[in-house]
Every structure is written in C-alpha cells, then in structure tokens.
C-alpha cells in the first residue's frame, strides 16, 4: 500500500516540435525524459519503507547500481497493454521501425522480451511497485557499507511480496519465485542499456543532462 502511494506520477516526453525527426532527436528526447524520471525515482526511493534509514552512502550506491533497472521496469510496465511497442511515455510510443532509425533496435527487442514475460504473467501494479523496490534493494552494488541493513531491506520487501501473493494468488504458490526470476533479464537488459548510452555519450552528438550523465558515469 505504501509503495503504491509512493509511485511517481506519469512523465511526458515532449519531443521538441522544432527539431526535424532524426536519430539524434529521438535519443535527445529519451535522455531528457530519463533525466526527469530519475529525479522522481530518487524521491520515490526515499519513500520505500526502510530505505531512508540506510546510511546516505548506501542509498547512493543502491541507486547508482539500479537506476537503469528502475527506468526500464517502468517502461516495461507501461508497455504491457501495447503489443510490440514501447511506451516510454504516454506521448512517446516507439515501435520497431522507430527504434531501428534511432539505433535502438537491439535494446527495443530485449525490453520487449521483458514486457512479454510480464504480460504472460499478467503482472499487477502491486507486484510491479514491489518488484521495482526489490530491484533497487537487490542491485548488488560493490560499495555497500552496511550489508546487514541492506539485507534487512531486501528481506522486508521480499516479505511484502510473499504476503501479497499469499493473499491474492493462492492458486500459484510459486508466483513470487516467478517474479523474482524475471530480475536476471532486467539486470541484463539494464546493463545493455547503460553500455549503449555510454557509447552515445562518447560520440558526443546527443545532449545529456547532468544527473543522467552522473549516473551513467557512476556505473563505469
């Protein structure tokens, strides 16, 4: 219930109407959207019960490792009802053709694989918000100072998911495990996305805001 209430509101992509369509415009739009979502996601993290009681450096380490997983999971959930398209924002839905012209076809394909998995499971909003918090707590940062405290956060979120499934999905005792088993694909997809946007940063043709750059560099 707390996590549902903490879920950030929708963000619009607002592509610049003055720019001609191009791969640079698409990538600029996505990086700008991601930067604004990151601000909301950082505030969201503070509303996860237990997160703010971690030391500040561990809060930073978890976010530095999981920020792209959180962004991708939000895209995946938004895209559940939209066959073969990715809903980056209500006003920015991308199909394979658009992804290809933006040089994002590979990423588009792997995120769609994640979407198909959640669609086949009929992922619910309560499960989505809890899984996203678990992804943050379970982000395997190498710089955690208080390992026990982070483990405690993982345990309490895991407990929350188990409780939810026990009440709402008695018919499938393994559903919690099935949800957790989607995390490796989320991690792999996120790593590919970070790598891809790092190479885009290198060639320097796409403007990127400071927070997005800061988190991109945190993973190097």
């Amino acid at each position: 219930t707390l996590l549902l209430g903490a879920e950030p509101e929708k963000v619009c992509a607002m592509p610049d109407p003055a720019l001609p369509d191009s791969d640079i415009k698409a990538l600029t739009t996505l990086c700008d959207l991601a930067d604004r979502e990151l601000v909301l996601n950082i505030s969201w993290a503070k509303h996860i019960p237990g997160f703010s009681s971690l030391c500040l450096s561990d809060q930073m380490s978890l976010l530095q490792s999981a920020w792209m997983e959180i962004l991708i999971l939000r895209v995946a959930f938004r895209s559940l009802l939209c066959e073969d398209k990715l809903v980056f924002a209500e006003d920015y839905i991308m199909d394979a053709e658009q992804a290809k012209s933006a040089g994002l076809l590979e990423l588009h394909k792997v995120i769609l694989q994640l979407v198909r998995r959640y669609r086949s499971m009929r992922l619910e909003r309560e499960e989505f918000v809890t899984l996203k918090a678990i992804a943050l707590a379970n982000s395997d940062s190498m710089h955690i100072e208080d390992v026990e405290a982070v483990q405690g956060l993982q345990d309490s979120l895991h407990e929350a998911l188990l409780d939810y499934e026990c009440v709402h999905h008695r018919e499938d005792p393994r559903r919690t495990g099935k949800l957790i088993m989607t995390l490796p694909l989320l991690r792999q997809t996120s790593a590919k996305a970070v790598q891809h946007f790092c190479s885009i940063k290198q060639d320097g043709r796409v403007p990127m805001h400071k927070l997005f750059l800061e988190l991109l560099e945190a993973n190097v």
Partner: peptide
C-alpha cells in the same frame, strides 16, 4: 562523493 553531487543533494533534500 564530489563526483556524485546531484544524487547526493537530491537524496538529502527530498527527505
């Protein structure tokens, strides 16, 4: 920590 100024600031002031 210097390198991660914005994240540090956002975590501090949105609490």
């Amino acid at each position: 920590k210097e390198k991660h100024k914005i994240l540090h600031r956002l975590l501090q002031n949105s609490s």
